[in-house]
Design a protein around this nucleic acid. Structure first.
Lengths: 181, 181
DNA sequence: TCTGAAGATGCGAATCATTCGCATCTTAAA
DNA sequence: TTTAAGATGCGAATGATTCGCATCTTCAGA
């Protein structure tokens, strides 16, 4: 306990390293760092849990960053992904893409409940090894793996009620996610 | 050889079974079969390889089906999916969702080349078993698994040229797919 | 420190796939 | 047949993401 209250020091340093990484990518492409870009990257790195572009924009506004336009955030996404700061998280479900910070964090996959939208993370070395092997067997050099299991969580199964009829839009993913801090 | 020329008999019967399956789903929901719906289902069942909604519409037009409006095709997708006639194939890449016929076909996953868009199918019992186990371990009853590996195929790796810069849209997936017949 | 060219940003318009509303045909069960 | 419940075509509406463009900023020299 107490270890979860990693509020400032360590986290701030991780953010600093993330920003450095971003600068490298920018330099490599002859692009420039800017205050807005830095604010966006900071927000993404600090965000706990999954987020969408508009979540990030709201977060930026809330933290007093002058406008920080959506278009700008969109434009910075590919760069942040390339720098390894963030990555697309879940497989898009109709509503836009969901991201999550990935800098200095372990790779993992998701399990999503088709009933309530609950998202659970899991990690499997065996699975990853298997994936690499499959890719290799087909002559591919693995770069990225999209993996998401869907089913009904314990609670929803208890609650009975089978899978909702097709066409019903599931509400935004629900997770035990905290808000940005 | 010659075995690939499974033109009519067997295939036509499979289509008939698929339509029956669809009728069951419709009946269960108190929905009705219709000539348009049947034409759409036939097209989907007969389509070789991956297709998008507009591909299907074009195919329908080409086969002389009166208009067959896009909206109608969209409306029938959830039903066909529920009936197991088709399923979303690749993970959407910006351009719309890609489907493939799945009726009486083996489940499989895809490997996609980030260079040329080549799509290769593969199948792994081990992988599927592992997935079921993971789901079970978390109390989930597995319903669906999204799985796609991305990397560079042999040819693209030979051709050198590292991954294209971010922001470049990949053209429509390329496969050794034949057109509908 | 000053400058200029290359980039970055805000804003609103433009895209694009997908969905809706609704008036009008069809289907299927009495 | 009749007729209520559905299905369809069409075009408008959505919603996420992208573009165009007229300004700001950044940063590598001078």
């Amino acid at each position: 306990m107490g270890g979860d209250r990693r509020g400032s020091a360590a986290k701030e340093q991780a953010i600093a390293r993330g920003l450095d990484r971003l600068r490298e990518v920018l330099r490599a492409r002859n692009l420039k760092m800017s205050s807005v870009r830095e604010a966006i990257a900071r927000a993404a790195l600090a965000y706990e849990g999954h987020f969408r572009v508009d979540d990030l924009v709201r977060y930026l506004h809330a933290s007093g960053v002058r406008e920080a336009h959506m278009a700008t955030v969109y434009r910075s996404l590919p760069l942040m992904i390339e720098a390894g700061l963030i990555q697309p998280a879940l497989v898009p479900n109709g509503d836009g893409q969901v991201y999550e910070a990935s800098f200095e964090r372990e790779r993992h996959d998701h399990l999503r409940c088709t009933g309530c939208g609950l998202v659970v993370e899991y990690k499997s070395e065996t699975l990853e090894a298997l994936q690499r092997e499959i890719a290799a067997r087909h002559g591919f050099e693995l770069e990225e793996q999209v993996h998401e299991l869907r089913g009904r969580c314990r609670k929803c199964r208890r609650a009975g009620a089978s899978t909702p009829p097709p066409g019903s839009r599931r509400s935004r993913a629900r997770t035990a996610e905290r808000s940005p801090r």
